[in-house]
């Protein structure tokens, strides 16, 4: 029986998690905190508390609502979400410090769940193919969000030392994608022609939005302290993802130049910063064995499933759409007189 506070409830995943938890029999009460109320008014049985986590207002909110579990979902991946790099850093770093200070004060909080990101590992040519959870410290070249996420985790580690009685779970998610969520990556893949870095084909993993919520819920409801990478099975490379979405790649020497960034901004895609362009140059892989063995979480969707679910909902009808390719293939087969053969082979097998 517990009272759960979800910090960052105005955003898509925060609002969905709060709803999901409010429907769980193990949770008595869900308190949602954010600077604005969630856009869709149907909060169900959630108590909304308006508080800015970059101020001591969060301390009052925690003192008043006396939660047992605090879920920190207020770490923003893009500066566009916050309205610039300065407020982004303010919300991520100062917000976390204020929240942790309040949790440290509280005599009710016994569990803290932090939604972090695999961005803490950075993306570089000298990165190992798969990052395990204990390899974040020696990761390279951090700036922007990568640096924020690492600093946030450093403060959380400090908190763990000062309050050893509180269970702390840090979930490092790979990019979240699915039919509904809007992220820099989702907006990138709906461009009709997608700028890519020439001569690079980054590998990446995805986690489906439903799996992301399930993992957060599991960490909130059960006791699974520790740091865990969370990703769906398998990998995609960028060219393969674009092919699956029927998108044409436009190779450019770099995505980091002001011209390219300006063009992408004008094309309506969220502002990319160096963290995203580095990710789209070098890619990243994380090891998920700890997720299976210790968090005991099994994602329902693989990386490819998550991407296909996104394509089905948002990116059909591209120039190289699957159906068009299949139609051309069919035409070529009948021109060559191959159309009967495929069926014949199948029968033999």
């Amino acid at each position: 029986m517990s009272r759960v506070m979800v910090v960052g409830v105005a955003r898509y995943l925060g609002a969905r998690l709060a709803r999901l938890l409010s429907e769980d029999p193990k949770v008595d009460r869900v308190i949602g905190v954010d600077v604005l109320p969630p856009p869709s008014a149907d909060l169900g049985a959630i108590d909304f508390v308006e508080a800015d986590i970059t101020t001591s207002a969060i301390n009052k909110a925690i003192a008043r609502s006396r939660p047992d579990v605090v879920v920190h979902m207020n770490i923003l991946a893009t500066r566009a979400d916050a309205g610039g790099r300065v407020p982004q850093k303010e919300i991520n770093v100062i917000g976390t410090m204020q929240l942790l200070a309040a949790c440290q004060r509280s005599d009710t909080v016994r569990k803290l769940v932090v939604k972090s990101s695999t961005a803490v590992y950075g993306a570089s040519p000298s990165a190992p193919a798969l990052f395990a959870e204990d390899m974040a410290q020696n990761a390279m070249a951090r700036s922007g969000y990568e640096k924020d996420a690492s600093e946030v985790e450093a403060y959380v580690r400090g908190f763990t030392r000062r309050r050893p009685d509180v269970d702390v779970t840090i979930l490092r998610f790979v990019n979240v994608l699915g039919p509904a969520i809007r992220t820099v990556l989702s907006e990138y893949f709906v461009l009709p022609v997608v700028p890519v870095v020439f001569g690079r084909d980054p590998r990446f993993q995805l986690v489906h939005e439903e799996d992301c919520l399930d993992a957060l819920k599991l960490a909130t409801v059960e006791s699974r302290p520790g740091i865990f990478n969370v990703a769906g099975d398998g990998f995609l490379v960028l060219s393969q993802a674009l092919a699956r979405a029927g998108r044409l790649p436009m190779p450019l020497p770099t995505l980091g130049s002001p011209i390219v960034r300006g063009l992408m901004r004008r094309a309506g895609i969220a502002d990319m910063d160096s963290v995203q362009t580095r990710f789209l140059t070098h890619g990243r892989g994380v090891d998920t064995s700890r997720m299976r063995e210790q968090l005991m979480f099994v994602p329902r969707f693989s990386t490819v499933d998550a991407f296909d679910a996104f394509v089905e909902a948002r990116a059909r009808g591209g120039i190289l759409d699957r159906e068009r390719v299949a139609a051309v293939d069919q035409v070529l087969r009948s021109v060559c007189g191959l159309d009967g053969r495929q069926a014949g082979l199948d029968v033999i097998e």
Binding site: R203, S239, L242, R322, A326, D329, R341
Partner: peptide
């Protein structure tokens, strides 16, 4: 030649629709 054309078309279609797998090191 038919076999070759068959294999080529299959390969081209898998490439154009992204219907292949890479392992965690990026090996295709």
């Amino acid at each position: 030649m038919a076999g070759r054309a068959e294999r080529f078309l299959g390969f081209a279609r898998r490439r154009l629709t992204g219907d292949f797998t890479v392992d965690s090191f990026g090996f295709d």
